[in-house]
Amino acid sequence: MQNRDDFILIDEFIEGDAKAFGVLVERYKRKIYMTAYRILGNHEDADDITQEVILKMYSSLSTFRKESSIFTWLYKITTNLSLNELKRKKIKNFFSLDAVTDYFADEKTSSPESKLGEKELSSKIQDAINKLPEKQRVVFTLRFYEELPYEEISKIVGTSVGALKANYFHAFNKMVKELKNVV
């Protein structure tokens, strides 16, 4: 039902109805934003990526082939742009002296007591997610937070269902270990 409504809105947008686009954005912007936030770990980057996704949506919606649902398409764009941003940051940090000072700063504040005292819950959780490798982070976000079935995630990330299950299992176990003191 949702799919059909989305396709009707896409057709209306292609015919020139800008409000239809606004409806689609309202419908999906939160999911896009939260997915990007979970992958990237901060709101500023998530905001940038969300805008990128919406722009991409605007420019490419007329060529959307309706072979999948629009949210699969949007998740794919969001995931790809978020991962690209992560890679870009990695390269940037590699060449940045800030990465060296941050490394030593983390070493000094490694005691559990200081962490529990200082950070909010959501920071701790996001830190745990940030420690996951990229693939696991994406799968964890899409499976746990977005509650997508494995088959859908498989279309988004292009990985087999079996591998996704393994990814998710590992990611979840790591999260349990990381947040043992908090849970």
């Binding site: 939160r30 959501s122 979840f172 947040l179």
Partner: peptide, 17 residues
């Protein structure tokens, strides 16, 4: 442990939003 983590993450998500 699985269930507790799941509840914690869901609670955090709604607060975050």
């Amino acid at each position: 442990e699985f269930e507790n983590l799941s509840q914690l993450l869901k609670k955090e998500t709604s607060e975050l939003i």
